[in-house]
Simulated scan of single mutants.
Amino acid sequence: MTDKLPYSYTLLRYVHDVLTGEFVNVGVVVFAPSGGQVRFKVRRTMGRLKGVFPDLDRAAFMSAMASTRRALQQIAKREQDAGMFSSLVNAGDIARRALPLDSSSLQWSDCGTGVTKDLDATLDRIFERFVARYDTHARDRKTDEDVWRPVRQRLEERDLAQCLQEKSIQGGLDAIFFKHAWKNGKWHVYEPLSFDLVDADGIKSKAREWLGHLSAVVADGRAEDFKPHFIVGAPSDPSLHDAYRTAIAILERAPNGPEVFEEGELDALVTQIEDEVRAHRQSH
């Protein structure tokens, strides 16, 4: 009978915005105290990251991953030499020595535990489950621009696209830039939001971010009068539907009474714009 080894593991997360907390897993460290066995695997490619965070600085990210990899290699060698005399308790201890906790974009998760007969196979399984599983689907995820494209096409068909312009809404504390807006007494601003993200936390965090933006702009009452309209794209993963509905509810509770249009309601949105533009033209 082969003895099973107790082990612990921790995930390395890339946190794109520490304020919203939206993250993607980018590595795994596994540690079996018996014999001081350390195994790790971290990203060597961008994978789905560029699709999820289009403004990610690739060079800076790859440099940070290389530094983390080198630090883990040194600690793994040290623990192998120490063997049963290792003073470290779990994978979190290993991880924090390689990359201490701070406010940077690379953060460690809480530890998980288990038992295994094959530590290398366990490392591969955890990496596949938490890091690599979405890579093949990243290119298929809708972006904000993908959500807006059919709106623009409908507007062009009705000769309305030229009515929209860029607008920055300035408040005392913050400002929001909108690519699509027009004025009819007050500014009507339109923002496409794709919620075709990788997990529920990311979906809700994106909605909370917009709730925060709008709240900051109107906080002191100095912003121009404006009406927000969100055009939202649903996640492709059916299991994230509840998070998507929660995100919509968060947007609807934002200041200035936003209207939220889903992808099946685009004709209604464009008809509303057409009616308002026609009425505005007739009144002038």
Rank of each mutant, 00 (worst) to 15 (best):
W108T: 02
M1S: 15
G264K: 04
R58L: 09
S109A: 07
E252Y: 04
V189K: 00
K41E: 11
A98D: 04
R44P: 08
G171F: 00
R278P: 07
H241E: 14
Q37T: 01
A95C: 05
V18N: 13
S86N: 04
P150E: 11
P238E: 14
S67Y: 10
T116L: 14
G51P: 12
L88D: 11
H188W: 03
K50S: 12
V189E: 02
D124K: 02
L56V: 08
H213Y: 10
L88V: 02
M84Q: 09
R245A: 12
L240Y: 00
E224I: 10
Q73K: 09
I126L: 07
R58W: 07
R281K: 14
Q73A: 15
D159Q: 07
Q272F: 01
H180F: 07
I203R: 10
R129W: 15
M46C: 02
S194Q: 06
P255D: 04
P6C: 00
L269G: 04
V28H: 00
R154W: 05
D81I: 07
E156I: 04
Y190C: 02
Q107L: 10
A64V: 08
K227L: 10
D144C: 13
D120Y: 04
S215Q: 09
I248M: 13
E209H: 08
T143K: 08
P54S: 08
T2I: 13
E224R: 03
I203A: 08
G233C: 04
A82W: 03
D17V: 08
V151H: 06
R39L: 05
Y9E: 03
V115F: 01
G47I: 11
V217T: 15
T143A: 03
E263G: 15
R149D: 07
S205P: 06
V38H: 03
P150D: 12
K41R: 09
R281A: 14
P100S: 14
R222M: 05
E252A: 08
E259P: 04
S104C: 12
D17L: 06
K77F: 10
V189W: 00
D124I: 02
A247Q: 02
D17Q: 10
Q107G: 10
F177C: 05
H16Y: 13
V218P: 01
V277Q: 08
A60D: 03
L266R: 00
V15N: 01
G51N: 11
Q272K: 14
N25F: 05
Y134H: 13
V189C: 05
G257F: 09
A95N: 00
M65K: 05
K167H: 00
E263F: 12
K204E: 15
K4D: 13
A76K: 07
L164K: 00
R158V: 03
I203C: 01
D118Q: 07
D135R: 15
R208T: 07
F226P: 00
D57K: 14
F31L: 10
I250C: 00
P255S: 12
S283Q: 07
G172T: 04
S87E: 06
I126Y: 06
P255H: 01
F226N: 01
